[in-house]
């Protein structure tokens, strides 16, 4: 096997495949399987502030008794739910920590600078190697400008950085007006890695029954092109590591991301579909390609096709298919 060592949030890892935050890592057994299959690091299932809020509103508040009598009991019950969820999470980290040696990264999703900051500290104490902050909010507030939203994200990150000492990764969506500028702002906060991108829960419509349905939870193999472009554009422009995510289902896609300059890649859907052993298969493909190409280590080729290294950087900035379509008029 070639040398597949790289880093994630500054921590040396033995393979570039990082398991992204997902349900596969919600049990100690699951984590053990992923580690055994060769994951370089594992980002644990995300703790969602919103999920807790939803549970509170959907399951708790409707239990408020007749004539509002139980309100006092339920008024702050969301805190109770948070504590329970967090305690379970801390327990998972502690138990997994005993069993596996790969770096475990906790993932939290918060939408405000509330008491969630405190939880980051608890996770740090539980023995995580790093923290991934999932900035995952569908921006639909009509009154909020893009700039205000970006400022809010920066505030949240700065707050967390004040509180925790472990390295921090930030996972964002692609929906920013000027992604390069925002990525630079994020990097300047001192985070160790920028993970691009997280996926929204997709909705779809069932036109027969005229109902809103789930649009499929998994990424498809074609989705890698969006992170590929942005990884290439950003990888040499930021202080922090760039980590590619979404649509990376094969060793080939992973190689592309590394060529674009990604320090590591996050994989989720492909492992869901094929099981943890898929990690081994992907690593095998990377290894074979490297041997074929004569690369000893990942550093030998990483970033070869990043925008700043590319022979024709304009191609990355080209967004319209003018020529293509003009030639193929129906």
């Amino acid at each position: 096997m070639q040398n597949l060592n790289t880093t994630f949030i500054g921590i040396p890892i033995s393979s570039p495949i990082v398991v992204g935050s997902c349900g596969l890592s919600s049990t100690v057994e699951g984590i053990e399987k992923l580690a055994k299959a060769g994951a370089g690091a594992i980002v644990l299932k995300s703790v969602f502030e919103e999920e807790i809020l939803m549970e509170y509103e959907k399951n708790v508040l409707p239990n408020v008794g007749p004539m509002g009598n139980d309100l006092e009991f339920f008024d702050y019950y969301d805190y109770q739910i948070k504590t329970e969820v967090l305690n379970k999470y801390v327990q998972l980290i502690k138990e997994a920590r005993e069993k596996v040696s790969v770096p475990l990264i906790a993932s939290i999703n918060c939408r405000s600078t509330s008491e969630w900051m405190a939880y980051a500290v608890k996770l740090e104490e539980a023995g995580i190697s790093g923290l991934e902050l999932n900035l995952f909010r569908l921006p639909f507030h009509t009154s909020q400008t893009s700039e205000q939203l970006e400022d809010e994200y920066i505030t949240i990150i700065n707050k967390i950085r004040e509180k925790v000492r472990v390295p921090l990764a930030v996972k964002i969506s692609p929906n920013f007006t000027n992604l390069v500028n925002f990525a630079r702002r994020l990097s300047a906060t001192g985070i160790q890695a920028l993970v691009m991108f997280n996926r929204y829960f997709n909705i779809d419509f069932d036109i027969k029954n005229e109902q809103v349905i789930s649009g499929g939870a998994y990424s498809n193999a074609a989705e890698y092109m969006l992170p590929l472009r942005w990884t290439s554009i950003l990888s040499n422009r930021l202080e922090c590591e760039v980590v590619a995510s979404t649509g990376i289902h094969t060793g080939e896609a992973a190689i592309k991301m590394l060529l674009a300059g990604a320090r590591s890649v996050q994989v989720v859907s492909a492992i869901y579909k094929n099981g943890p052993t898929h990690i081994r298969a992907m690593l095998h493909d990377i290894d074979s390609w490297m041997k074929e190409k004569g690369y000893e280590s990942i550093d030998d080729f990483r970033g070869n096709l990043s925008q700043t290294m590319a022979d024709n950087p304009e191609i990355f900035e080209r967004v319209q298919f003018m020529k293509y379509f003009s030639d193929h008029k129906a």
Binding site: Y79, Q80, E115, A118, V121
Partner: peptide
């Protein structure tokens, strides 16, 4: 309901 709840903030 005897057990007091706390917010578990720092």
């Amino acid at each position: 309901a005897g057990l007091p709840r706390f917010m578990e903030i720092p």
